[in-house]
Write a protein that binds this DNA or RNA. Structure first.
Lengths: 310, 310
DNA sequence: AAAGCTTACGAGAGCCGTAACCATA
DNA sequence: TATGGTTACGGCTCTCGTAAGCTTT
């Protein structure tokens, strides 16, 4: 038995039992992969794959029993290499973060600049995309960290999720707008106007819908966007009333617009930081989390990683 | 990197950093082992061993960080092989049990005969020895199961310990002995006679001492033995009063001797079954535990193995 | 036909063990 | 001097990739 055999075994499962894809993914020949699998089956004395003629269709019952151990071994071997790398190049490396516009623009800048000061040699990569893509990038191991409000918290089997910060939606209107008359804000008054807010699945949008539905109100969302900057642009054009995350409003920068707090109308939202479970973490990743939330140290993170939520 | 390198690494640590011993333990050449270690260090880019000239003295700090991962990988690889073996030869194999005389003679016989009926092809090996040796045999992996009253329960880091059954000490005397006069048994009355019981460290002996000490009584242990059969022999010779585990008394077999219950004088004892943590368990091992305690199924055992006590 | 797995085979890398060498107690 | 680790080296196995063959869709 050798590690390559296990790697090929794992990759073949991941590539939906397509040996050709598996071998290209591992930069090796397909014939070699074929032989490796047969050798492994021979040594273990067990058929791992269900075959129809020459095609691989899936795992046998025995294969399913053994694959989890194999996965763990391969993962551990990778982690061993990473750990060793980490020990020699403590300060160098890459940190890839997948995140939404909202986080990248309003929540992460102070974190990133502090992090860059602490680890100048680490190459930072911000991957801006939607919540589903964050999840798949994380799962595929293409990024180290995911940051978003949506989509992460219900993936605690694969990810360890840490609370980042909490925030509320606010209403944003042009100066002199009827809603800015000082009278208390209600859902009914807001819904009298055309609304502009985030796309479905972005930045707490699901909760907004829920609130209106619970109140029996059907608002008119005339325009939805991926980010608050676009929303603000159309609010300035007087196309409607904006509903944005309050940290997206900047008094000096957003002259001509007025922010009306709406914490009493909409429930609070929580943004999460997610890491894959089971993978080795470079020391600077711990540092990054530590900057995000001071109470997260390497020790506490390690502890929370192995359990459920945080 | 390959598995042999990791195996050699692990074995070298286990053999107290003696490469020669490590390589003989793995049935390979010492020169090869030397090379493997240097290759591994080269590939990982880290010195794993502290050296003084050419001697290996211990692990470096980096080595200490990595050794636990290496241990786990090697263990998983072994478990993978065992699991596969298990899947093909479900019913065959060996089951080694280390246990004391008391368990082997009085508690295990019904379990063993039931087990043999269920798995006739499994070769059973009973290793009779003292509690400390049970612990070391288990640790070394020379036996699969340890059964004893003493020594196991405070090793929960290395072993998963399951309660087997509970029992009490009893007093045993020849027929017509003054203690068998029907009057209630007290510590004071017992201590008037010379006592015969188990060696230190065997079958609840420590608790006996504690009870007398707490009562401010200094009994006269004239003779100690490893097992109840020896004790009974000397009680028959009227050399003293016996203190034995009550399950060691058999009315028909032990004619001429009288058992006086002493559950009110001595605290209850618990016998434990111990398994090593982290190792793959053949299906018949689950069956063995299941016979010992009906509520232990493969599922419950798996669950309890990963946690602390049971 | 096209996609996909297996078999055959030759080149080359890597592993192993013997033996000689070197360093430490 | 004995124990223990390293270096050198030849044999040999094992791995890898190309190419051809065979099966299934």
């Amino acid at each position: 038995m050798n590690i390559q055999q296990l790697r090929i075994m794992r990759e073949t499962v991941r590539q939906d039992f397509n040996l050709t894809d598996a071998s290209t993914a591992l930069h090796t020949s397909q014939s070699g992969a074929s032989k490796h699998i047969r050798d492994l089956e021979g040594e273990l004395g067990v058929d791992l794959f269900e075959r129809k003629g020459k095609r691989l269709l899936g795992l046998t019952g025995e294969g399913r029993m053994l694959i989890s151990l194999i996965e763990r071994i391969v993962l551990d071997v990778e982690n061993l290499k990473r750990s060793a790398m980490q020990l020699t190049h403590e300060e160098e490396g890459q940190l890839s973060i997948a995140t939404t516009h909202t986080q990248a623009r309003y929540a992460l800048p102070p974190v990133v600049s502090q992090f860059k000061a602490a680890f100048p040699k680490v190459h930072l990569e911000l991957h801006q995309c939607g919540p589903e893509e964050i999840v798949s990038l994380l799962k595929a191991g293409k990024v180290d960290i995911g940051v978003a409000t949506e989509g992460l918290a219900n993936e605690t089997r694969n990810f360890a999720c840490f609370r980042f910060y909490e925030w509320h939606h606010s209403v944003i209107v042009p100066e002199g707008h009827p809603l800015a008359d000082g009278q208390p804000l209600t859902l009914e008054r807001i819904a009298e106007f055309p609304l502009i807010t985030y796309h479905k699945g972005f930045t707490g949008r699901s909760r907004l819908n829920q609130v209106f539905e619970d109140a029996g109100i059907t608002p008119d969302f005339v325009l939805t966007a991926l980010d608050a900057d676009v929303i603000k642009t159309y609010v300035e054009l007087n196309l409607g009333v904006g509903l944005i995350a309050s940290m997206a409003y900047h008094e000096a920068r957003d002259r001509g617009l007025v922010l009306l707090p709406a914490a009493h109308l909409f429930p609070k939202n929580t943004s999460y930081i997610a890491l894959r479970r089971g993978y080795f973490l470079r020391s600077y990743i711990y540092k990054f989390l530590n900057i995000c939330r001071e109470d997260l140290t390497e020790q506490t993170i390690r502890g929370l990683m192995s359990r459920e939520d945080a």
